[in-house]
C-alpha cells in the first residue's frame, strides 16, 4: 500500500519537473506556482508515506516484544524509524532532496533548479520501486538496534542531499556558463546557491560521520575502522574541505567551484551506491 503511494509520489515529482520546465519554456508564472504547489503536495504525501512506514515497522516490532513502560516504547519508536535497509534509505534520500531544497533554496526552488531536484527525487523513488530492491519491512538485526541509528542516518542523508542540491546548481552553472540563456538563473546566483548548499551538506555530513563514529564506538569499540563506507565518506568530506578552503581562502568561484561540486557529488554517489555494490563491509545493506 505504502509502495503504491510512493509510486504516485514518484509520478508527482515527474510532473513537478515537467511543470517547472514548461514554466521556463513559456515563461509562465502560473505554471511555476502550479509546480510549487504540486511539489509541496508531493513532499506532504511523501512525508505521510514515511510516517506510515514508520508506524508499520513499529507495529511489527511491538508484536515481537511489546514494550511495557513508556521509555521502552519511546526507544522502540526511535529504533523503528524507517531507515534500516536499502529500500528505506532510498525513499528517505528521495525525501531529503525536496525537503532540504525548500529550506536551503527557498524561492529559487523552481524553474530549472526545481526541475533538476524533482528529477533526482523521482529517479531515486523509481529505483526504489522498480530497481528490484526488497521493500519488505524486516525486523532489526542486533547491530542496528541503537539510538544512534536515527540521528546517524538522518544527518548523513541530509548531508548527501545538500551535496545533491549543490550538484544540481553546479550543473546549471556549467550549462549557463557554456551557453548563456536568459531563462537560467544568473551565474552569480547559482554560484551563491552552490556555496550555500555545500556548506549545509558539509555540516550535515560531518555530523553524520561523527554520530557514526560514536555509534561504532558503542557497538564495536572502535570509532573508526576503515570500513569502505567510512573511508569513502571521509574521501567525500576531504573533497568538500578542499572546495570550501579554495573558495574561502583562494577566492575560487564559478566554474572551478562548480566542477569541484560535481566531483564531490560523484564521491557521494560512490559512497552511497558504489560501496554497497562493489565493496563489502559493515554497511553492506544488500547482503
Amino acid at each position: 500500500m505504502i509502495s503504491q503511494i510512493l509510486g504516485l509520489v514518484m509520478l508527482g515529482y515527474l510532473l513537478v519537473a515537467v511543470l517547472f520546465l514548461a514554466a521556463e519554456l513559456w515563461s509562465s508564472p502560473r505554471l511555476q506556482s502550479w509546480g510549487r504547489v504540486l511539489l509541496w503536495a508531493g513532499l506532504g504525501v511523501h512525508t505521510g508515506a514515511l510516517l506510515g512506514r514508520w508506524a508499520g515497522s513499529y507495529q511489527l516490532a511491538a508484536l515481537h516484544s511489546a514494550p511495557a513502560v513508556f521509555t521502552d516504547n519511546l526507544r522502540l519508536v526511535i529504533l523503528q524509524a524507517p531507515l534500516s535497509n536499502f529500500y528505506e534509505s532510498l525513499v528517505f534520500f528521495a525525501w531529503t532532496l525536496p525537503a532540504l531544497g525548500v529550506i536551503s533554496f527557498r524561492r529559487h526552488l523552481q524553474g530549472y533548479l526545481g526541475a533538476v531536484v524533482a528529477v533526482l527525487a523521482c529517479l531515486l523513488l523509481a529505483y526504489a520501486s522498480f530497481g528490484g530492491v526488497d521493500s519488505r519491512i524486516k525486523p532489526l538485526m542486533p547491530a542496528l538496534k541503537s539510538n544512534w541509528l536515527l540521528i546517524h542516518v538522518v544527518t548523513a542523508f541530509l548531508g548527501y542531499a545538500g551535496f545533491a542540491l549543490a550538484f544540481g546548481a553546479a550543473i546549471l552553472y556549467l550549462l549557463q556558463d557554456r551557453r548563456p540563456r536568459a531563462s537560467l538563473p544568473p551565474l552569480a546566483q547559482l554560484d551563491r546557491l552552490i556555496y550555500r548548499a555545500t556548506v549545509l551538506g558539509f555540516l550535515l555530513l560531518t555530523l553524520g560521520i561523527l554520530t557514526g563514529a560514536v555509534w561504532a564506538e558503542t557497538a564495536w569499540g572502535r570509532y573508526w575502522s576503515w570500513d569502505p563506507k567510512e573511508t569513502w565518506s571521509l574521501i567525500t568530506w576531504l573533497i568538500y574541505v578542499t572546495l570550501l578552503h579554495a573558495r574561502l581562502l583562494k577566492g575560487w568561484q564559478g566554474r572551478r567551484i562548480a566542477w569541484l561540486a560535481v566531483l564531490g557529488f560523484m564521491a557521494v554517489l560512490f559512497t552511497y551506491f558504489g560501496v554497497s555494490f562493489l565493496l563489502t563491509g559493515l554497511h553492506s545493506y544488500l547482503t
Binding site: W226, P228, T231, W232, L234, I235, L238, I239, V241, T242, V275, L279
Partner: peptide
C-alpha cells in the same frame, strides 16, 4: 595533502 590522503584512502578501499 588532502588530495594525497584521499588518493591513498581510495587505494585502501580497492
Amino acid at each position: 595533502l588532502l588530495l594525497i590522503l584521499a588518493g591513498v584512502a581510495v587505494i585502501g578501499t580497492v
